[in-house]
Simulated scan of single mutants.
Amino acid sequence: MARYTGPKSKIARKMGEPIFGEDKVLSRKNYAPGQHGANKRRKLSEYGTQLREKQKAKYTYGVLERQFRNLFKKASSSRGVTGEVLLQLLESRLDNVVYRLGIAPTRAAARQLVLHRHVTVDGQVVNIPSYQVVPGQVVAVREKSKSLEVIQDSLAGFNHAKYPWIEYDENVKGGKMINLPQREDIPENINQQLIVELYSKQ
């Protein structure tokens, strides 16, 4: 399946914030890329603002349009506030949980670890990044993968208290999802209501 592999700094500059993590380029060039990026551009329309918010969410979580639309449909048919449920579904993806546990430094790296069969869910190897983790399940590093340098480097000094909805266990180099995260527990700067408004027009 196709996935964005282009320059991340360009996208971060377009969005105006470091959606892929710390970005030195963004701190030096905090304006949109391109010939007229430094000039003041016309104000985005309401639709443009909503579309940009959706694109920001897609790039942040590494999800393609069809996957994102399917998650939105699932969120809209679930109990609760649609926008918040959508973010909970994105946060519950296996690659995101691996990233939140500090097993990988980025979501892209977490996705690769999952695809290469280094991650287990309740003791069973799962190599599907979009797998939906549910409360009570334990996500951990496969026994023979615990010595991988990339995993050890990522876990070194990681603050596991950052996310109260996940309980970390050093013995398994992983953790249990205690409950679905509340909106205030998700640090990403995403206005989910704008995404809901965008899809309601389609």
Rank of each mutant, 00 (worst) to 15 (best):
I103E: 06
K144L: 11
E197T: 05
E22Y: 15
S200A: 11
V25A: 06
Q124R: 15
L198A: 00
P18F: 01
Y163L: 08
V25M: 13
Q55L: 09
V126C: 05
S45G: 07
Q132A: 15
A109Q: 10
E65W: 04
Y59L: 05
V172D: 00
K144H: 10
K173D: 02
S9N: 07
R100H: 12
K201Q: 14
M177C: 12
K146D: 04
V139Q: 07
T120I: 07
P33L: 05
L180Y: 02
S92H: 01
K43R: 12
H118W: 02
V126M: 03
I11C: 00
D23L: 03
E53M: 06
K56N: 01
D122R: 13
K201H: 13
D95L: 08
A57G: 02
E188W: 15
R28G: 03
H118K: 14
Y199W: 06
R42K: 15
V126L: 11
V133S: 00
R66M: 07
G136C: 08
I195K: 05
V63T: 15
Y163K: 11
Q132K: 14
K29L: 13
G48C: 06
N127Y: 08
K54Y: 03
I128R: 15
V63R: 04
S147R: 06
E22S: 15
V63I: 15
N171V: 10
L89R: 09
I103S: 02
A140N: 02
P129S: 11
K43A: 02
G83P: 04
K146Q: 14
P18C: 13
R107D: 02
L87C: 06
N96P: 05
K144T: 13
G157Y: 09
D95F: 03
V133N: 04
T60A: 04
Q124M: 10
V81C: 00
Y163G: 00
Y99W: 10
I190K: 01
E197D: 09
K176D: 05
K201N: 10
R66Y: 09
L155A: 03
Q192K: 08
L87Q: 10
L51V: 13
A109Y: 09
S76N: 11
A2K: 15
E143H: 12
K56M: 00
K173E: 07
H160S: 11
K56F: 02
Y31E: 02
K43Y: 07
L101W: 13
Q152V: 14
L194P: 04
I103G: 10
G21V: 01
R142V: 00
R117H: 08
A38W: 03
Q152W: 05
E188H: 13
P129D: 12
P129W: 05
V121I: 14
I103D: 08
K54M: 04
Q132R: 13
K40H: 15
L26P: 06
Q132H: 15
P33S: 13
A110W: 06
V133R: 05
R28L: 06
R183N: 02
I11R: 06
K58Y: 05
P105F: 00
A57C: 09
Q50W: 03
L71R: 12
V25C: 05
E167R: 14
R41F: 01
E46K: 10
A108E: 13
Q193P: 01
V141N: 08
P129N: 12
N96H: 02
Y99F: 14
P135A: 10
K73A: 09
E167G: 01
V114G: 03
N30A: 11
A2V: 11
G34E: 15
L94P: 00
A12F: 04
L89V: 05
P164Y: 04
I11N: 05
H36V: 10
V172N: 07
A108T: 09
A32D: 06
